[in-house]
């Protein structure tokens, strides 16, 4: 298990390379969202009233709960990593498993919210009752972007949770190195960081509450 790949001269170097590559990949992932944020900026500029109305329509409380869930998940995975580094795999397992559970909770809340949106007739592309009943022009654009951005983010949450689930299992079996968990944790923090920006854009900045 402690063997390093043949083309590396040492395990330490292999781990440095892996962590470095992860950072490069994270930069790339970050830019995957750039287009959506950019569209948001432009269309919010074109339709300020509609975007404020759309944000106001989203459930700020659910969004905030989810933010707290994700941030807590970030804290637990960071602590889990530290535990594993300090040779406490049982505590590490508990913390990483908590992270996975919190990720699950996030997804449950998100899906509930999607369900509410579907019930209200808010579908991507300006489809559904909500828009037929005279939404402001531009609200369709807002909700299309909402679905796309949170959907893409939810996919990332799912992937991150899946990775951490496998890692938790391997911590329990004692076959996971701290350096490997660090890669998973880095990815998870990125998922968190993206949400930290999504949340105010789609839940908070709706102008004065009605």
């Amino acid at each position: 298990m402690a063997e390093h790949a043949a083309h590396f001269e040492s395990l330490a170097r292999q781990q440095t390379a892996a962590r470095f590559a992860m950072w490069v990949f994270l930069a790339s992932e970050l830019l995957l969202f750039a287009g959506l944020f950019f569209l948001y900026m432009c269309y919010r500029l074109y339709w300020p009233a509609a975007f404020a109305s759309g944000v106001g329509h989203n459930h700020a409380l659910l969004g905030t709960v989810n933010t707290i869930v994700l941030i807590t998940a970030s804290i637990t995975v960071a602590m889990g990593l530290r535990k594993l580094q300090h040779g406490a795999p049982r505590a590490a397992f508990r913390l990483v498993a908590t992270t996975v559970l919190l990720a699950g909770l996030f997804l449950v809340v998100k899906l509930t919210e999607y369900g509410v949106h579907i019930d209200e007739g808010i579908l991507p592309g300006g489809r559904g009752r909500y828009f037929a009943e005279g939404a402001l022009p531009g609200e369709a654009a807002f909700f299309t972007l909402y679905w796309l951005t949170t959907g893409l983010h939810a996919i990332h949450v799912t992937v991150g949770a899946g990775v951490l689930l496998v890692m938790a299992w391997r911590i329990r079996r004692g076959t996971l190195r701290a350096a490997q968990l660090e890669l998973g944790a880095l990815y998870w923090h990125l998922v968190d960081a993206i949400w930290i920006f999504l949340w105010p854009l789609y839940y908070l900045t709706g102008g004065a509450p009605k």
Binding site: F38, L39, C42, Y43, Y46, W47, P124, G125, G126, P137, G138, A140, A141, T144, L145, L148
Partner: peptide, 15 residues
């Protein structure tokens, strides 16, 4: 046909 860039729905092809 989600109208992300569709000018008929207020989208902007230049974006």
């Amino acid at each position: 046909d989600w109208g992300i860039f569709d000018p008929r729905r207020g989208g902007d092809p230049v974006i």
